[in-house]
Write a protein that binds this DNA or RNA. Structure first.
Lengths: 291, 291
DNA sequence: GCAGATACCTGACTAAAGTCAGATATCATG
DNA sequence: CATGATATCTGACTTTAGTCAGGTATCTGC
């Protein structure tokens, strides 16, 4: 670390406090107290259970109750008993509430793009923001199953291919428009996992099955901004567990010595090196793990 | 920009809001309302004029008055009339106030180093934070005169030498411990300017005089995280103005073609290329500007 | 069916922050 | 020195946020 890292950290905190303060109070542009605005946004973001919203926003039950009541009076929110548990209530936005939520969303989006438009190197700025956001939120990164043809999965796969093209001496080329292997990474033959950080994908791994007892692990990739958090290990553990559940007996994978961190990970996770098992031109190392 | 830059920006805003919220309320650990704590910290950070603090924190004059009164009762702050204008008042921390301020500082420092210690690549994280903080605060970057032997100046010079060593094909080497030219960049013969962002240096330029009518511009450097904001142009304009003030008639500088952005800047600012005027082994381009 | 836990609601509070209309003293300027 | 601007202070508010002690209805596990 160079000149006074703590001072630099605190300069960041100050800069961001000022900006975020403005961001928070921008909600006040719509003449509603911050607390009520936060509840509208929590519901709009998909949180339905009152208890869930309460926990997320850290509110007292009495305060929560009153905020919901005032939002109901305003006609933005409707509540009804939870279908499975009559003690609980679920909240949803009315049409007017939806409009209000959209207005908040547009405000935030406009703020974001204004800021990005003013930055001299928006791309670099976004990568920096990713690194900060992911480091702060590393404990909230969750692994979830996804369709390999979904937008989030495609984003990871594209980044994966681009990184291979950059790092392999031979380059790398896949016809992205119709990935020939996506079909094989769908249940029941296989599956596909994403690591999600606050709604955005930051890593993936695929299980490519053939219907038989042998399956292949493919497409392990972690967003550079999320490396060092042990996500690759978590994804590999999750894909192994999923393979067991699908009654796979043997897992295989291929990789390239230009990716030393991958080789190290596989060796450390109990994979053993085996002979070449395909004629793919890119890989030069082959591993197997018996489950 | 790759996958949904606005969503990425907003993920950053959310992550940082949560963290900064915790940062703000950490002040509450010392049983003092946030408003009062912010005033103590503003005074501790060197703001003395009541009006200045009020503007910085965005407070109503009535509220400010009451906050100061309560801090005086607590014995943390003392106020007195402004020596030059009896309408104004200046505030300063008492000894107890200094202790309280230090306690806040230690809290913030501890928080910062805990966060940095947990990051897998603290160096990269800091650079990302610099980029975000400087982009957010670009309009508050100020140019100030400084001693080239001060810590802040040395930090810039070291970074400058390191960058030259990286970018020049020949490498670069200065005996830092006793920079032979620092003496010549001090008034009355010359001077030295820093660009300061929230208390930390992000760029520099030196004016090396000999006592005569010809002086040299040296050591123009901008922190990579602060490039693209037009700081180099501002520093060059400031050093020119200072040279005029010192009755310098002709400015010269040398540079290297491995730094094309510097060449472009000098040409655009009205410098004209001249013949080699020294036998320094590193530069291969020489410029002059008549004031 | 009963005890204890859980989810939400209500009423009665307090603390903190912010607003606004004067009052007072001082300064800058013609 | 008169006039208007400026800086701070005071008193009287309101709004927002948060706390706490009960109260009602419901669920879970024995």
């Amino acid at each position: 670390m160079t000149f006074d890292s703590i001072a630099r950290f605190r300069r960041f905190a100050r800069a961001v406090t000022a900006e975020v303060g403005a961001l928070d109070t921008s909600f006040l542009g719509r003449s509603r107290p911050l607390g009520a605005a936060r509840v509208v946004n929590a519901i709009g973001a998909g949180r339905t259970d009152v208890a869930e919203i309460r926990a997320y926003l850290g509110l007292d039950s009495g305060l929560m109750s009153r905020l919901l009541r005032s939002l109901e009076e305003e006609g933005l929110v409707a509540t009804e008993p939870h279908p499975a548990d009559a003690r609980r209530r679920v909240a949803r936005l009315t049409e007017a509430g939806q409009r209000e939520f959209s207005a908040y969303e547009e405000l935030s989006d406009a703020r974001a793009s204004a800021m990005l438009a003013r930055a001299p190197r928006a791309d670099e700025l976004l990568r920096a923001m990713d690194l900060v956001a992911l480091t702060l939120g590393r404990d909230r990164i969750a692994i979830a199953e996804a369709d390999p043809r979904s937008g989030a999965a495609r984003a990871c796969l594209e980044a994966y291919y681009a990184e291979l093209a950059r790092r392999l001496a031979t380059g790398f080329n896949v016809t992205l428009s119709c990935d020939p292997e996506a079909e094989a990474m769908v249940r029941p033959r296989g599956m596909f996992l994403l690591a999600m950080a606050d709604g955005l994908p930051v890593g993936c791994v695929g299980l490519k099955g053939s219907g038989g007892p042998v399956a292949e692990v493919k497409r392990l990739w972690i967003d550079p901004a999320a490396r060092g958090f042990g996500l690759a290990r978590r994804l590999m553990a999750a894909v192994e567990a999923a393979a067991r559940e699908l009654s796979i007996a043997v897992l295989r994978l291929d990789t390239n010595s230009a990716l030393p961190e991958a080789l190290a990970l596989y060796r450390k996770a109990g994979w053993v090196e085996i002979d070449r098992f395909n004629d793919d031109p890119y890989p030069d190392h082959f591993f197997e793990k018996v489950l």
